[in-house]
């Protein structure tokens, strides 16, 4: 595992020194948090929207995780496009060391991003006079860990299968789909019909739903545990698939 940690440490440094990482992984979600709060303050109080801060914060946290996916794919596809990985293939490092080395730093970034999002949301809630529950925020942050792994899994697969030009493009599709069908920017459950069926077909919907349920400390099976289970299942499948794909690709590269 020491080699995996060494590689994680290298990847964290690479990420922290990339200004784009700050813009996309932290700046953009925070801007959305502020803009949507301004929007929420501009519409009648009685209107049912997802822009009230207690619903907005978990949604934006999920939105931010999609950019972690983008950076995971970019990090891996860029390494693959050069000969840096080839150098590492010729050392005692294994496919597991490399995969853990990619996943672990992204998970740390996702947790930090989530923390910053919720702290900012808490400050905003104090300003607008609707204080967020600290217990709810902590529960929501923990609930978002499987969701982070799910998006990292997507990033891992795209980064392994596609080059540094195609992978971000595919991630943009997931970001659009996730934003739309995840019910981040509208109340998916109030839509009904085909729209709701499509939302329920996508894992993103369950990420937002479980995080919002945790935020309101609603730990019912329907509102929290079942969506969380769906997200955890998707995360397990995608991470496993990502590891398998990485290992297969490494063997193909060495063939």
């Amino acid at each position: 595992m020491n080699r995996a940690f060494a590689f994680s440490s290298r990847n964290i440094r690479e990420l922290l020194r990339d200004p784009l990482g700050y813009i996309f992984c932290i700046g953009f979600p925070l801007i959305m948090l502020v803009i949507m709060t301004v929007l929420d303050q501009s519409i009648p109080k009685e209107a049912v929207t997802v822009f009230h801060i207690e619903k907005l914060a978990p949604g934006v946290a999920v939105f931010g995780q999609m950019f972690v996916m983008l950076f995971t794919s970019l990090n891996i596809s860029t390494d693959r496009s050069g000969t840096f990985l080839m150098r590492l293939y010729a050392t005692p490092m294994t496919a597991s060391d490399l995969t853990v080395g990619y996943v672990l730093p992204m998970l740390i970034v996702a947790v930090i991003q989530c923390l910053i999002t919720f702290v900012t949301a808490f400050i905003i809630s104090l300003i607008i006079g609707s204080t967020l529950s600290i217990a709810g925020m902590l529960a929501s942050m923990l609930t978002l860990i499987p969701s982070a792994l799910m998006f990292i899994g997507f990033g891992l697969i795209f980064g392994v299968l596609f080059n540094e030009k195609s992978a971000p493009g595919l991630c943009s599709i997931i970001i659009s789909l996730g934003g739309f069908f995840g019910g981040i920017w509208f109340d998916a459950e109030s839509t009904g019909g085909m729209m709701l069926k499509m939302c329920r077909f996508m894992p993103f919907f369950y990420c937002t739903r479980s995080a919002r349920a945790a935020m309101s400390l609603d730990f019912t099976a329907k509102g929290f545990f079942i969506p969380l289970l769906v997200v955890a299942g998707c995360a397990a499948v995608l991470i496993s698939l990502g590891c398998f794909t990485f290992s297969k690709k490494m063997k193909a590269d060495l063939g």
Binding site: R10, R13, E14, R17, D18, G82, T83, F84, M86, R87, A90, T91, P92
Partner: peptide, 17 residues
Amino acid sequence: KSLIGISPQDTAVSNRL
């Protein structure tokens, strides 16, 4: 692998380190 070292055709360094 424990007996060799390789410097590939490209520089193969970590650019931001």
